[in-house]
């Protein structure tokens, strides 16, 4: 408890002290960064109405210490990074985005990293828009709401059979580790149900372009996708 309070105090101190001067600096090209954010969008929401999805939402991320949302379940690695004092300032974010697994060993974030400094700084310039003035988010279509595929409420409402999901999942775990670890193939454990279903339908409809996943999703019926979403969503 004492730790939590001190972190909040620290957060307040950091945000309060640093925001003013940091906002005056141009970090990078935010328009280019907006395009780069496409890489992040399948897991992170940003903007008006942003919610936690596969990853936490990124509104107001600047100067927040790592792993501070109570309503999001982070990896053990991310909690350890918070204990070690990782703060999402420009340096902390840049190091993490450059090499996620090197910076936070055990992170669930299935992303190889952006090795080029310019790419990182452009992306941060874009993220920064949603931290400087969170009460004044641009009126353009919020990135948070856009859905890759429009699915009928009936499909989204299917309740998956967990036993069937467990069997079907055996086909996934040849590549996707049941621990959720990322060693080159994304972790798929603990995702919100809807995100899982939408992602699988996006592959099935070939709106996502990975040939293995298009093939695997291509032969799954709606109830099978729901069963998988239920199984992996509840897996610890």
């Amino acid at each position: 408890m004492r730790l939590a309070i001190s972190i909040i105090t620290l957060w307040a101190a950091l945000t309060g002290a640093a925001l003013g001067e940091e906002s005056a600096e141009a970090i990078g090209d935010s328009e280019r960064g907006a395009k780069m954010f496409k890489k992040c969008k399948s897991c992170h929401q940003l903007g008006d109405g942003a919610k936690h999805k596969i990853g936490p939402h990124l509104n107001g991320i600047f100067f927040r210490p790592a792993a501070t949302f109570d309503d999001f379940k982070y990896s053990k690695g991310m909690y350890a990074a918070r204990e070690a004092g990782l703060v999402w300032d420009i340096d902390g974010l840049s190091r993490f985005i450059e090499d996620p697994r090197g910076t936070v060993p055990g992170t669930k974030m299935s992303f190889h990293g952006l090795p080029k400094e310019k790419d990182r700084f452009d992306l941060l310039a874009f993220l920064r828009i949603y931290s400087d003035n969170p009460q004044n988010i641009p009126e353009a279509a919020p990135t948070a709401i856009k859905v890759e595929v429009e699915l009928s409420p009936e499909i989204l409402a299917i309740v998956g059979d967990p036993d069937y999901g467990e069997y079907l999942a055996t086909e996934c775990t040849t590549c996707h580790q049941s621990s959720g670890d990322f060693d080159g193939i994304p972790g798929i454990v603990g995702w919100p149900n809807e995100d899982f279903v939408i992602a699988m339908h996006a592959y099935k409809l070939k709106k996502r372009d990975h040939p293995v996943m298009q093939m695997m999703a291509g032969r799954l019926a709606d109830d099978e996708i729901a069963a998988l979403a239920a199984y992996f969503g509840n897996l610890n």
Partner: peptide
């Protein structure tokens, strides 16, 4: 990534 996946499987 697949190697890590299948060997843990």
């Amino acid at each position: 990534g697949w190697y890590a996946g299948i060997t843990s499987d």
